[in-house]
């Protein structure tokens, strides 16, 4: 029983660790789609930011400069997507996929040319990364059974960006539901003509959403390469942008349910790591390849089985054309 409890604690701990980039990217997708722009370039933005952050941190020695570089790169990509989707009214899904592929090619080219490490960036040491933070009160809490253990092992000891990511969930909900910007953003995703009639610029609102998405994906990518990892590796986003998109749909374009969906996916990812090589009752040891597909299978099942009636923002994916 003791061992089982400890297993669960460890699993929850790695779920929280893994959920950071997912929820950030999912919130990015949420802001974009709530404004009426479908964004499947979350993956590319994360990868671009992961590369820029790792490269900048390696050169300057500061994780904070890395964060800045990651965010700027991601914003630039987000604006490119905005330029294609909002200004030029191009196919949004195609544009997103194109950005993913461009980044998947460009990042290793630059990495190879700058660092000569076969498409990677140099390994970052502790001082160049966002490392784990011990929350106050850990010493006191460590004596408390169960709750204390949970606090010490699960809640405390994550990197700064993870806490930022979690804090951004209620903040996003507040922005979306309680501020003027949020109201306008939701309106522009549902009925852009009405927003236009009210004399508010649809274009500018959607670009603002792109910038928000850029910042969020920038933090997500930075956390991949400078917090969870210690440097940029080719294709290190490994489909997380698409998992995030699935989480956003599963969470029905609402921040808190999206967080829960991200936790589910992160948990299945943590479970995947934990189950490798473990002897299970009845089935025995499952091949590592099957275990590794767990997060992707869970995503497909979640999208197919439990979503129920989904209703995306009415104008999402549709370019705005002012009617005369």
């Amino acid at each position: 029983m003791e061992a089982f409890f400890f297993d669960i604690v460890l699993l929850l701990d790695s779920s929280i660790r893994l959920v950071g980039p997912l929820i950030l990217a999912a919130l990015a997708g949420l802001f974009a789609e709530r404004s009426g722009v479908v964004d499947i370039s979350l993956e590319g933005k994360m990868l671009g930011a992961a590369f820029a952050a790792a490269a900048a941190a390696a050169v300057t020695g500061s994780a904070w400069v890395g964060l800045g570089a990651g965010i700027l790169t991601s914003i630039a990509l987000a604006l490119l997507h905005g330029f294609v989707s909002i200004t030029h009214r191009g196919e949004q899904i195609v544009s997103g996929m194109a950005i993913n592929i461009v980044v998947a090619g460009l990042a290793p080219v630059l990495a190879n040319s700058w660092f000569h490490l076969n498409g990677q960036t140099p390994l970052l040491d502790e001082s160049q990364r966002f490392t784990s933070i011990t929350l106050p009160g850990v010493e006191v809490m460590s004596n408390v059974p169960v709750v204390g253990t949970l606090y010490v092992e699960v809640i405390s000891g994550h990197n700064l960006l993870t806490y930022v990511a979690i804090a951004l969930v209620p903040l996003s909900a507040w922005v979306l539901y309680k501020t003027r910007f949020g109201l306008r953003l939701r309106a522009v995703g549902e009925n852009p003509s009405a927003v236009d009639t009210a004399g508010i610029s649809v274009i500018w609102l959607r670009y603002q959403a792109m910038i928000v998405a850029g910042v969020l994906c920038g933090v997500a990518g930075t956390s991949l390469s400078t917090a969870l990892g210690a440097g940029f590796i080719r294709d290190m986003s490994a489909g997380k942008g698409f998992l995030a998109l699935a989480a956003m749909i599963f969470g029905r374009w609402m921040p808190v349910p999206t967080l829960l969906a991200c936790l589910l996916f992160a948990f299945s990812d943590a479970l995947q790591g934990r189950l490798q090589g473990v002897e299970l009752p009845v089935v025995g040891v499952i091949s590592v390849q099957f275990i590794m597909m767990l997060p992707y299978v869970v995503t497909v099942i979640a999208l197919a089985g439990f979503v129920g009636h989904i209703r995306p923002p009415a104008a999402s994916g549709k370019p705005f054309v002012r009617s005369r």
Partner: peptide, 15 residues
């Protein structure tokens, strides 16, 4: 089921 085909096909690549 209305599952987004872009997401499911990419998941199926990994699987």
């Amino acid at each position: 089921r209305g599952s987004h085909i872009v997401i499911t096909t990419i998941m199926f690549n990994f699987i």
